[in-house]
Amino acid sequence: MDQVRGLGHFALFTGQSLSAVLATRRLWTRVARAIYEQGFRCLPVILIVGTFTGLVLGLQGYYVLNRFGSEALLGVLVSLSLVREMAPVLAALMLVGQAGSALAAELGIQRNSEQIAALDTMGISSCGYLVTPRLLAALFVFPAQTALFVAVGLWGGSLSGSLLLGVDPGVYWASVQRAVESEDVRECLLKAVTFGLLTISICAYQGFHAHRIRGATGARAVSAATTKAVVLSSIAVLAADYVITSFLI
C-alpha cells in the first residue's frame, strides 16, 4: 500500500519536474551547471572505466575466439557488447555513483537546512529550480557519456587485442565497422536516455524527500536517502536494461 503510494508520488514528482520546464526562468544557466556536474566532473571515471572495460573485453574475447580460430571476429564481440550493453549500463552506474549520489546528498542537505522550503515560500518552484535542470542535462549527458564510453572502450579493446595479443588492427577495426548497425546505436542511445531520466529522477526524489525517511533525521536522514538513491537507481538501471533489451531483440 505504502509502496504503491510512494510510486505514485514519485511519478507525480517526475511529471511535475518535467512540466516545470516552461515555467522556470533562467533555466539554461542551471542546466549548464548540471551538465558540469554530471558531465565534466564525471569525465575521468567514464574514461577510465570505459578503457578498462574495453581492455578486459579484448582480453576475454580473444581467448574465447582463439579456441575457434576466429580472432578476426574480436572487433564484433567487443563493439557489440559495448554498444548494446556494457556502455549504457556501466556509464549509467558510474554516473549514479558519482553524480547521482552527490545530487541526492545535496538536495537532502538543502531540505534539512530548509533551503527547499525557502524556495517555496519565495514563490519559486523548488522542483523547477532544483530538479528540472538536472533532468534536462541528463537527456544530453547520459547519451554523450555512453558514446564516450563506447569510443574509449573500442580503443581499449584494440589495445589489448591488437597491441598485446596480435590481432591485426585493420581486421579489428574493419570488423567493428561491419558489426555495429544503426539499430544497435539506436538501442544504445535509447537505453542511455532512459537510464538518465530514471536515475536522476530517483536520486533527486530521494534527496528531495529526505525529511520523509522514517526513524532518522538530520545527517542520518541524508545518508539514508543517499544510500537509498544509489541502490534504487542501480536496480532501476539493470531492470530497465532487461526490459528494453527484451523489447528490442
Binding site: 565534466f40 563493439s79 544530453f140 549527458v141 554523450a144 558514446a147 564516450l148 563506447v150 548497425e181 542511445l189
Partner: peptide
C-alpha cells in the same frame, strides 16, 4: 564536455551506425 560528448555521439551514429 559538450564538445567531447558531441564528437563521441557523431562518431557513434555516423561512423559505427
Amino acid at each position: 564536455f559538450v564538445l567531447l560528448g558531441l564528437a563521441a555521439l557523431v562518431y557513434l551514429t555516423l561512423k559505427l551506425g
